[in-house]
Design a protein around this nucleic acid. Structure first.
Lengths: 225, 225
DNA sequence: TCAAAAGTGTTGTTTGTACACCCATGT
DNA sequence: ACATGGGTGTACAAACAACACTTTTGA
């Protein structure tokens, strides 16, 4: 297929991916950050990311960066590109355009460690992140907005939880992402009306009254736009 | 600012923009296409597009391509990127990633002619386009979906019309974009309830009963997400 | 028996949708 | 007078928002 050649001006702009990967920890929405080990912005926190390889699809590059910049293998339940950041001076190394991705990691994804070019990796509160390198604060901002949008109509909240979960847990995910409290009765009414949840009959022991366990009904996984 | 250098693997992927530019003609939603003058896909129709230059923002590249691939200067009322297409084999010349943009051209933008590398430019029905080069059919498809989404909550329909317009004209824009008829009474109720339209008192002569003219209320232009 | 968390209904408001006739003008 | 397109209101259904007490368990 390489019968025609790329014109020279086609290869002067660098193409990267950055990934805003979210998970729930301690009832809070957290985002995965890596501490840069190289200039520019050495020692500051940043979204995991890197350059797209020639034979690699964009989502593959995003997955690879999630895997190599952190030691533990991460298997996102959801991955979608949401915006492409191309300001001319967003990176001091030259003209680099970044296709930003949103990832959702399932419950239990806790241990992460730096790998590759990074000094470390850790989870941070998504709504109150530390100072970030490059334009990553803007990228994170937009990622959260997209996540909030998706929540409303693509059952994305379930991807944060294990296979079985209680309604209060699910409501906690919604509240953590939307960053505001929700009414318990209206929440239950709305969710159950969608009939994407089925009670698994069991109950989970805890401090107060045990909660009904639910799981997602078969065939109700909605594809991302 | 060029104190740090781009790593070599950063420059192996070509970055382009493609633009789906829409306008209303004869009560129909039309999209601007150019006929390619070069391989690959010589003589087939395609969305206007081309490579991003080093010192150029993405939206500037989109505007430039709109201007150089057509002779008449086009001044879009709305321009936003909506998705980045990066399939590995989408272009036989090599690895080229395209940031796709959606543009809305105002009423009266009729004459276009080929320029640059193209054999010609013309408007085509957006819902029934001819065979398109590369993956441009998929890009156009997604552009129309985005346009339909925007319509619902970003008053984008007004950008297709001149400063003053009648409600039946506005309804025609909605129907052309959504590709389905709307109820006249409900449409008027909904639009007037938003109070973004003010009657300009005048009337326009035509065949039947004259229609009330409206214009957009000041300060009601909503920024694109 | 107390603390802690789960569960449950009703009411009013807003939003959306279906639907048919009269009005103002030009010919 | 008639043809052409513009303009108007109501009734039902669905979705959404506010709001407080009872139930089940473990300690």
């Amino acid at each position: 297929m390489e019968t025609l050649s790329l014109p020279p001006q086609a290869t002067q702009v660098g193409l990267a991916v950055d990934v805003a990967a979210f998970a729930m920890h301690a009832g809070e929405l957290r985002v995965l950050l890596v501490q840069r080990g190289e200039l520019p912005h050495a020692r500051t926190w940043a979204l995991p990311g890197g350059f797209v390889q020639v034979g690699e699809a964009l989502h593959e590059a995003a997955l690879r960066e999630l895997g190599t910049e952190t030691t533990v293998k991460l298997e996102p339940r959801h991955l979608e590109q949401f915006y492409t950041f191309g300001e001319v001076n967003r990176d001091p190394r030259g003209r680099i355009v970044s296709v930003a991705h949103l990832a959702v990691l399932p419950h239990g994804t806790v241990e992460v460690a730096g790998g590759g070019h990074t000094l470390g990796a850790a989870w941070f509160p998504a709504h109150t992140p530390p100072t970030l390198a490059f334009d990553h604060a803007a990228i994170l901002d937009r990622a959260i907005k997209r996540l909030q949008l998706r929540l409303e109509y693509a059952n994305l909240a379930l991807e944060f939880l294990p296979d079985t979960f209680t309604l209060p847990e699910l409501q906690g995910v919604y509240e953590a992402i939307l960053n505001r409290p929700l009414d318990k009765r209206n929440f239950r009414k709305r969710l159950l009306a969608q009939s994407i949840l089925v009670a698994s009959g069991e109950r989970r022991s805890g401090v107060g009254r045990p909660a009904q366990l639910y799981r997602r009904a078969k065939g109700t996984r909605t594809a991302a736009l």
